[in-house]
Design a binder for these strands. Structure first.
Lengths: 206, 206
DNA sequence: CAATAATCCGAGTAAATACTCAGCTTCTCA
DNA sequence: TGAGAAGCTGAGTATTTACTCGGATTATTG
């Protein structure tokens, strides 16, 4: 057994305890963002949340479960955003398709970037979370699916490769922009540059 | 003072001690790759190296210094490889320039990938190492420099953006390929796909 | 061949921290 | 309304682990 169980020890049934759990999660996010995973101690989280350490362990069997719960909620929100961004523009021009993908990637990165950073950079070693935190794969599969709808004649191997390239570059450029020049997200500079890069590739690949 | 000092406590002067240091570093790399940073204990490294824990602390003031020494050596090798790959092909066609960049990125990733992974994913939080481990910036600056030589008329802002895009995508695609399908590095599939993506962008951007 | 320096040893220390548990308080519902 | 359930408490435990230090062993040097 490599990773510990992350299933809750007890389910909060009363309103009071549900509030406690919410408070703990909120505090955990704060501490995690401020200190990183290693320097996040369960005692500190409890203190920050204004509950006793015992209460924390009433609902989370261990530290990993706490982070896992946080990550799970974050992922749900991310995927919702991506779905939203992809569905809004259902027009059929390649240009708008690429544009929608880029916007989806950018949107996803606007959901609590600080927490995202910690989760991505430090949490992957937590068993079981690595895969589910992997937005990459989720987005890639959506792209692959979209490709197949638009061009059924495309060989599956080819579709997978194109999806991988599109997803990888969008993700990487967005992430890089955030780290290097957060302004670029607002000015749309990155969006434009990504379009410049990916549209010709996409057109040529079809 | 955020990070601890990583300067050696004592320099090994005799041959015996230099051998000891080498053995310790080798063992550290092994343990780091197998266990990750957190599960790497100094005692375990010493044991694996066949020296006492006291000897380890004779030359490395703390755990971070040990990892820092390892990272430093790794970085030197990486940069040497990149320089090499870039200098070999000094021909002037845009196609070969892009090809050389891609090959440089791929080559860099062939230097002890397992160690690289650990260092990149888990070590950045070690103060001072984050920047120097940042191959990104090194490669980007080399690209920027190359661009300026080839096209002096190009506005500096534009050159920086192009370099950023090229570097980011090469790095990301290579990294992704390693994780997803290590074979692609050998078959040249990734190399070809990257060329397909980046050459039109590069030509259009000039 | 001393005497001094360099190297090595490893049991032991100190500190950090994940997690427990016995008992108290608050809530629910028959 | 009272008995049992749910929730809360926090001092204390157990474990892990980075790091020390007094002393033994080996190398150098005058």
């Amino acid at each position: 057994m490599r990773g510990k169980s992350t299933t809750p020890r007890k389910l909060p049934t009363q309103t009071r305890s549900r509030q406690t759990v919410a408070t703990i999660l909120e505090a955990a996010a704060q501490v995690l963002m401020r200190n990183g995973y290693d320097r996040t101690t369960t005692n500190l989280v409890a203190e920050k949340a204004g509950v006793s350490i015992g209460s924390l362990y009433e609902y989370f069997p261990n530290k990993e479960a706490l982070v896992a719960a946080l990550a799970s909620a974050h992922i749900d929100e991310l995927i919702a955003r991506i779905d939203n961004a992809l569905q809004i523009s259902e027009e059929e021009t390649p240009s708008s398709f690429v544009g929608a993908l880029i916007r989806a990637g950018l949107d996803a990165h606007r959901v609590n970037p600080a927490l995202h950073k910690v989760l991505v950079e430090q949490v992957p070693r937590i068993g079981g979370l690595a895969e589910s935190l992997d937005i990459q794969t989720v987005l890639q599969q959506k792209i692959e699916h979209g490709l197949h709808e638009r061009s059924p004649h495309l060989p599956p191997t080819r579709a997978r490769m194109i999806a991988l390239v599109l997803e990888t570059c969008i993700e990487a450029l967005t992430h890089r922009a955030i780290v290097e020049k957060p302004d670029w997200l607002e000015t749309g500079e990155i969006e434009a540059e990504a379009q410049l890069l990916l549209e010709p590739y996409f057109q040529g690949a079809l």
